[in-house]
Computed example of a mutant assay.
Amino acid sequence: MTAVVSLAREWIGTPYRHQCAVKGAGCDCLGLVLGVWQSLNGRLPEPVPAYTMDWSEPQGDEVLWQAAARWLVAKPLEEEAPGDVLLFRMRAGSVAKHLGIAGRTGARASFIHAYAGRAVAESALSTPWRRRIVARFSFPLEGA
């Protein structure tokens, strides 16, 4: 298990709270990734502006993808590793607006994520979820 996976699993059970990133109190999918980033790096790479739950979907702007590309290390989709940050497109034609962290790979693949109405959980990376992955990243310090 990687340090990233261990850190992400510490957030399991944290209630969903839009625009929050406080372990045990509340977070959304971005808040989970930001919380893990802070544990690894001590501070955020840039201020996070307020954002809506639609992630600029009406405008078609890939705001979340662009931010991930600025601060995380992009990798090929087929190069799966525990601790990867996964970016999902929830519907065809919509912007990518959900994040998770790979927990396990292989036959029992899983990912850790927060989503509206739930707490942070580790879910099976089932075929429907896999089909939604549009980008894969690693944290800059992963493996260091």
Rank of each mutant, 00 (worst) to 15 (best):
D54L: 14
H98W: 11
P140S: 00
T14E: 01
E122R: 00
H18C: 02
S123W: 11
R131W: 06
T14C: 04
V85C: 06
L64M: 07
D54G: 09
S138L: 10
L44N: 06
A124H: 01
L40G: 14
M53C: 11
I133T: 05
R70P: 10
C27M: 04
V73F: 03
P128W: 00
G35I: 06
P15C: 03
Q19W: 07
A96Y: 11
V33G: 03
P15D: 09
A114M: 10
M53F: 15
G42N: 07
V33Q: 01
L141I: 13
D54E: 12
V134D: 02
L40M: 15
K97V: 14
T14N: 02
G60R: 05
G60E: 07
A21D: 06
L40A: 10
A67C: 14
A69R: 12
P47D: 05
I101E: 04
W71G: 04
W11L: 00
L32G: 06
L86D: 03
L125C: 04
P82C: 02
S94H: 13
S126T: 05
G83S: 05
A114C: 12
I112Y: 08
R91G: 09
H113A: 04
Y115P: 00
A135S: 10
T127R: 08
W11G: 02
A107T: 14
G143K: 01
P140C: 00
A81C: 08
T2D: 10
G83N: 05
I133A: 02
F88C: 07
F137E: 01
E142Q: 10
R89M: 09
L87K: 00
L64K: 03
W37P: 04
A25T: 12
V73W: 05
E46R: 00
L72F: 15
E10V: 12
C29T: 03
L77H: 04
P49L: 01
T14A: 03
A102M: 11
I112T: 10
G31P: 06
M90W: 14
Y51L: 02
C27P: 09
G42C: 06
T105C: 09
G83K: 01
E122H: 01
A3Q: 12
P15E: 06
E78H: 12
S123V: 15
C20Q: 13
A116C: 12
Q66D: 13
L72P: 10
G106D: 06
G26V: 12
L44Q: 07
Y16H: 05
A81H: 08
P58K: 00
W71F: 14
T14D: 00
P140W: 04
S6K: 10
Q59F: 12
V4T: 12
V85Y: 08
A81R: 01
A119C: 12
L141R: 11
A50H: 10
A114G: 14
S110H: 03
T52L: 15
R9F: 07
V5Q: 04
L72S: 02
A67W: 15
N41C: 14
I101L: 08
G93M: 03
Q38G: 07
A67R: 13
E62W: 09
I101N: 01
H98G: 01
L77C: 02
K97I: 13
A114H: 06
R108H: 08
P47L: 08
A3N: 09
Q19N: 07
S123G: 07
S138Q: 08
I133D: 02
L141Q: 11
W129E: 00
A96E: 09
C20W: 14
A69L: 13
